[in-house]
Design a protein around this nucleic acid. Sequence first.
DNA 1: TCTTTAATGTAGTTAATTTACGAAAATGTG
DNA 2: CACATTTTCGTAAATTAACTACATTAAAGA
Lengths: 284, 284
Amino acid sequence: MNTLEKIQTNLSNFSKSERKVAEVILTSPQTAIHASIATLAKMADVSEPTVNRFCRRLDTKGFPDFKLHLAQSLANGTPYVSRHVDEDDGPDSYTNKIFESSMAALDVARQSIDPMAINRAVDILTQAQHISFFGLGASSSVAHDAQNKFFRFNVPVSCFDDVLMMRMSCINASAGSVLVLFSHTGRTKALVEVARLARESNAQVISITAKDSPLARESTLAVTVEVPEDTDMFIPMASRLAHLTVIDVLATGFTLRRGPRFRENLKRVKEAIRESRFEKPSNL
Amino acid sequence: MNTLEKIQTNLSNFSKSERKVAEVILTSPQTAIHASIATLAKMADVSEPTVNRFCRRLDTKGFPDFKLHLAQSLANGTPYVSRHVDEDDGPDSYTNKIFESSMAALDVARQSIDPMAINRAVDILTQAQHISFFGLGASSSVAHDAQNKFFRFNVPVSCFDDVLMMRMSCINASAGSVLVLFSHTGRTKALVEVARLARESNAQVISITAKDSPLARESTLAVTVEVPEDTDMFIPMASRLAHLTVIDVLATGFTLRRGPRFRENLKRVKEAIRESRFEKPSNL
DNA sequence: TCTTTAATGTAGTTAATTTACGAAAATGTG
DNA sequence: CACATTTTCGTAAATTAACTACATTAAAGA
């Protein structure tokens, strides 16, 4: 709940003087955020510490912090909010809603990711002798994408979206093998089983999945991602986007770790594709 | 213009030290709004007055006022700016940059999409007797994802990431066939050729690609998407995300067109997967 | 009415921000 | 290339704002 609404709802819980402060803020919030604690106290006809206590009561660190929160709740220009598609939405409407929900989901995912986990994952990946990407169902395309990306790095990669192949691959895995498993829920039995098998072969298992999930527990390293999934649609949407972005992050970390000379290599890969394309007109 | 964008655009107008401050703020704006001027100065390795001058340069009354503006722009609409990853960025920094760039890219893509093209694409898809998804290279995983999604709709679908298979598939295509081609550039010779072949077989060709590209011209319907691609990295990143989101939009349009009874079907598909998963603890 | 507790204000303390000024760097000029 | 001028930046002092501790008052209960 945003701060302004919070003031509104808690109005009855405040003491007499605190309510005076609340009234002033609700009447002209724009003035409030630019006022000093002294000014505001005078406007509400209370003492400065009362204003301060009022702020603390709203779970803020103090007056300046409170102003920050208030400012944010005032800037309600409908940010990236996940919005549900309605039955009677037109193309224009549902297109926007879905794009906005996707952006909102990425935002949530971003905040939930632990950069240290990313860093450790990059550590492991850079030392890998072979990287395998595994994903089932909707995550199989994510795994394919990862393969495509890391293939460009001139690292031995493979990718499976088939449980039997995964299991066979695990048996042949060794200490230098790194497996990257993608699963939104982290509860797909077959995949959790694969993680266990792989670890029995001393391979390293990195999972991109949900926090505290069976898969996360079964992995050497879990990069946990929180994604708000719109369950109305019964189709995973946002989680793929988040996982793909995690791939981008890992790939970026990988290239950074390898240094500038390595990037020359990427350039050459890209140039190798060029001749398969039609030239762009003149302006470039 | 919001404060964060303003910092981004004026980056070149700042002096050396002010730019250091700008970098710190752009890297972690959330930290910045909660920091004191002293902390921020230390983070940017400049003096406190420099931070203050930086604030004034952005038409604010001073540091506290600046924080207020920044807080608002963080809460507001599109605070995300596409930013390049630096050589010496840490995991925290590049993770944020990439997520933010992705969000910014989706925002640009959203604005560039013509809802009427979406609508027509949905028209065509709902009437299809068979849908094939084609993509090469980085787009092959996009095509796979589309297949996975539309497969749930109980529509005959196929997916190819191999040119020969695509061509064979085109020969066998008929009037009821719909091909969906994914290509960021729209300049991949092989794919443009496939589009032509398909149309010769009277199949409908929908392309998700760049505006005014050879592929767009060769298609029955082009859903054109503009994506700001960070060419520094030599790896396609944002375009896949945008294309996947377009898939989501098309799939959504598809289900809406089919009506509520159709969505019951999706629910059943989802429930069919359930038993392959570990139960979630008790709280749900 | 007295006691106890909660609420509020006063005054002092601490912390943060801003200003004034001077040094250093950068830029332009003879 | 030396010198002058302007811009940039930092140090230190001054100012302002915010917070704490404590005293006082009001309210509630016995």
